[in-house]
Design a protein around this nucleic acid. Structure first.
Lengths: 393, 393
DNA sequence: ATATTTTGTTCGACTGTCGAAATAAATGGC
DNA sequence: GCCATTTATTTCGACAGTCGAACAAAATAT
């Protein structure tokens, strides 16, 4: 069911998104870029200025003719709250419309979801009352688990041991702001196509490598959530029928072979086999975390390097699966392993080349973890509703 | 860029598709179903009748009040040509708007693409001139290979040995009709959501099992073609690193483990190992085709049954991958193997249950091959343009 | 000063939907 | 047969939105 108002909504979001991604920009340039008439652009921009989404700035420089008035997103218009729940730590942030963080905080993720949620709500309320100068539009939450397809409830989070938790309800009651939940990998994928070098890509996959492996899929420019939001568990695809058991009940899952946890397990098993290894300085070292393995490999520990190589091999095998099946333009890798990409990357590329046809030229790209893609994704999640509303399926 | 005309186009296709899927239907019911005003429905229907897409039929029966005039799709309005190119045989058909075949023919698929294309064009021209009473809207072509993302060229077809063949051009020049190419598995998936029990499903995967394995993915109601149309090759995902070599250069690909060709290979190897098997009547039998294996298994041949069981096991493993990763509402299995689904189905279900979380309730459904899903898909492919035009990404 | 160029606005034409009222057609009770 | 009731369809004026041409504004070059 569409009317002239539908047309307005479509054009409005086209113009708003064009301003977002091209600011500063003049009305005339907007007309050229969107294909709309200059008169129409003026009307829509007037409306956006009235709603305070857009602000008029200085005049631009041109060689000839009347100088254009440049348009910007009005950063004072709204802030967004981002919450990234991870197995041990939860991060909170306030961001503006260009996904710049103005405040960041951390808190422990408590094992009891009820207790944790109470603490989280209090923390968010504090944060909001400390920054009353800006009105906040909404809260985006990313977490390592499955969310139902409307972003309403957490259905299952293996690494947290949580099941059927209503996170949206308490947060909305505590803050009065609309809350959107999303799986962490999905949030990362969204973040990638929202801004930065992969902005606007219509086929992209984000692979999060930490304790497990998650996949966020964007196809035809939309997140693939599957029936009831259960898509994205490529981490539990069986790549080796006789492989080690996984806590999902299967064995040889991709994430049992290629996650950080897998690397730690492999490394410590190796140590017991070889009854200890010595590093360059002669001291025996035990890796208790994946970070340890990374630094050990860096300092020349052969066993750690082999562990990474094996991880890279299996990463490649799973990525080849994604390339074969979905052929995205880009696959983004997220996680600590990217810090060793100089070593890991070539192995991944090699395995993918052997196992997948790369005609479509899929690029495999590590992400800078300091960009906090999970957190940035939560912001994109909320902004999406305003800037790219899904008007028609 | 949207205008009031865009709104019209949207509403027009909404109404047309509602008539298609609910015919016969009255204007008043259309208004109730689409949410448009009765007056608007009348205007749009007038236009559709003028364009001869829709025809007014008899009056319907109601307990009280004025009787409605029922609307139908006008079957005389247009026909569609469907061409399904398979490794040995190519099928041609003429169909009406409700995807009923009015004519069907077959011809051999010749190894030389140039020669074959000439023969195909001649055949289509014959077919069209023999049925001049109806004007044809377009030609849909399905083939076992990859097509670039605009449906323009065949990029690569392993089983045919063809590469970079322009199929669209010659056919369009020969007939003057617009031609749409699509990968066979994609065509099947489209056919499934176009009509029949899975009509309108937004997340569905079609798995074609023949010499290879193809996957056609529909997510968020749209075909997933990937960058440059290269998606859908889950058949070449490596499920066993040490598995048999595949002609794609890798080894242990799903289709090397679970296709018809794999079954034939396994069966004949088994025969050479056991130096021959005897069936119930005591005669030694050699399976030269997958159909042989099916009938042998049916007649109690143990080795054939074991072969099918192994095939089922690997089919399940690959399907579990699709369930984990994409979680569609339905996975449709297409191919001769469905004829033995009574035996194969339970094994597949069992493996999927062990290897994938089925929270979302994905159903695995064999398709009746006599429905010719590949051919039906080509028709849906063409009709899609008229009935569900993609106005906005 | 004046012509030129480019930006931004104004206004009437056009397209399309909405919603209320009018018209059409059928049933059932009197 | 006549009238109230019900449901379907059409008619028509109001409203929203874009288009496109004309106009006004602002800056530069001559």
């Amino acid at each position: 069911m569409a009317s002239s108002e539908t047309a307005r909504l479509i054009n409005r979001s086209v113009v708003l998104d064009a301003i977002r991604t091209n600011q500063p920009i003049s009305r005339a340039d907007l007309a050229r870029q969107t294909g709309l008439q200059r008169s129409t652009i003026s009307l829509i921009v007037d409306q956006l200025i009235e709603e305070r989404w857009v602000a008029e700035g200085d005049v631009g420089q041109l060689p000839r003719g009347r100088k254009p008035r440049l348009l910007y997103l009005n950063m004072d218009r709204a802030g967004i709250v981002g919450i990234n729940i991870m197995p041990h730590v939860t991060k909170l942030a306030l961001a503006d419309l260009s996904v710049r963080f103005t405040t960041q905080e951390s808190m422990p993720t408590l094992p009891n979801p009820k207790v944790f949620l109470e603490a989280l709500c209090a923390r968010v309320q504090n944060l909001l009352s400390a920054h009353r100068e800006i009105t906040y539009e909404g809260i985006g939450v990313s977490l390592p688990g499955r969310v139902d397809y409307l972003g309403q409830r957490l259905v299952f989070a293996a690494n947290l041991g949580w099941r059927q938790i209503d996170i949206k309800g308490p947060l909305e009651r505590a803050t009065g702001l609309p809350v959107q939940l999303e799986n962490a990998a999905n949030a990362c994928a969204l973040s990638e196509v929202w801004s930065g070098p992969h902005e606007g890509l219509r086929d992209l996959i984000a692979v999060t490598v930490s304790e497990g492996i998650g996949t966020g899929i964007i196809a035809n420019g939309q997140l693939v959530r599957g029936a009831n939001g259960a898509a994205g568990e490529f981490g539990h695809v069986c790549l080796d029928e006789q492989g080690p058991p996984c806590n999902c009940g299967s064995r040889g899952c991709w994430e049992v072979l290629a996650s950080n946890a897998a690397a730690v397990r492999n490394y410590t098993c190796g140590i017991s086999e070889n009854s200890g290894k010595r590093n360059a300085s002669g001291r025996r070292e035990l890796a208790t975390s994946f970070a340890d393995i990374l630094s050990l490999a860096d300092r020349g520990d052969l066993k750690a390097q082999e562990t990474l190589d094996a991880m890279a091999h299996y990463l490649g095998l799973g990525i080849a699966m994604l390339v074969n099946g979905l052929s995205p333009s880009v696959i983004v890798i997220i996680g600590e392993v990217t810090r060793a990409w100089k070593r890991v990357g070539p192995i991944v590329e090699q395995v993918v080349k052997e196992r997948a046809r790369m005609d479509a030229g899929t690029r495999i790209v590590p992400t800078d973890d300091t960009m906090q893609p999970r957190l940035r994704g939560t912001i994109a999640l909320v902004l999406q509703k305003h800037f790219r509303p899904r008007l028609f399926a």
